[in-house]
Amino acid sequence: MTWDRRTEDRAAAIVGRYPEKRSAVMPLLYLAMAEDGYLSEDGMRRVAQLTGLSNAQVQGVASFYTMYKRDGVGEYLVSVCTSISCMLLGGDDVLDAVAAETGVADGETGEDGLFSVEHGECIGACGGAPALQVNYELIEGVTPDHGRALCRWLAENRPAVVRGDDLQERFGGRRSFDWGPVEAGGATGAVPAFGPLGTAGEGS
């Protein structure tokens, strides 16, 4: 199996950024996820070919990290932080609200494939707790009501690109610090939006 020309070119560029090609495994796994919407077995096989590893080795790496989703994942992955700082300020209630609104329990994906819901461990937004991420785009200062409204809005508007700045404006509250100017970048799936991976995020 190979990807289309454009993706293969990106893959080759990623491999080229490292002194040893094995180092490209992690970004290539993101690339594979962006291709298929989740990390498929075929995706892992291609990463193995590109890095000279066995499929089992690639699976070993992929399964170590929580962000490589080897089972199908919803269009919107809502990760609600429930680590200590967010817990202290009501993160558990936000998680309950999100689960109730979406009808998707913690750790599950809805049958319609729209939402996946998970409790996250600390996402580095403790000063703006409680916080959550949608496709790893951060929203801080979220109340249970905000969480419900956010999920409703996503379900109704189905944005193709999830922009953290936009969602923060609409549904967020206190921030850990001043974020500075609004960014255009955002995520197109349950993969962190980071330019070199070929996912959205090249915005200003």
Partner: peptide, 27 residues
Amino acid sequence: VTVHLGAGAYICGEETALLNSLEGRRG
């Protein structure tokens, strides 16, 4: 300079785990 993204593993903050991760291994 190469910017490398982790993928959800606190332990990679431990410097040798980070190096394994950067080498494309389990962290």
